[in-house]
Computed example of a mutant assay.
Amino acid sequence: MKFRPSDFNKIVRLGTIKSVPNENNGNLKKTFVETITLHYAPKNRTMTQQYTLLGTKLEDTLMIVIRHNTNVQDKMLAQLPDKKYYDIVGISPDESNNVIRYDILTLKLNQKGVK
Rank of each mutant, 00 (worst) to 15 (best):
M1W: 07
K2L: 05
K2N: 07
F3R: 14
R4E: 15
P5Y: 14
S6L: 11
K10M: 02
V12E: 01
L14T: 01
K18Y: 07
V20W: 06
P21A: 15
N24W: 10
N24I: 13
N24A: 11
N25A: 04
N25L: 03
G26W: 00
G26Q: 02
G26R: 02
K29A: 03
K29T: 11
F32Y: 10
F32V: 11
I36Q: 01
T37P: 03
Y40Q: 05
Y40L: 03
A41I: 12
P42K: 10
N44M: 09
N44D: 14
M47G: 07
M47S: 07
Q49D: 15
Y51R: 11
T52R: 14
L53H: 05
L54N: 00
L54K: 06
T56W: 04
T56S: 10
T56G: 05
E59N: 04
D60W: 10
L62D: 02
I64S: 10
R67I: 09
H68A: 13
T70R: 11
V72H: 00
V72T: 02
M76F: 02
M76I: 00
A78C: 15
D82Y: 03
K83I: 02
K83W: 02
K84R: 11
D87G: 05
D87A: 09
I88T: 08
V89F: 00
G90E: 12
I91S: 01
Y102E: 09
Y102S: 10
D103G: 04
D103A: 06
L105D: 08
T106N: 12
N110R: 06
Q111Y: 00
Q111L: 03
G113T: 02
G113L: 04
V114H: 08
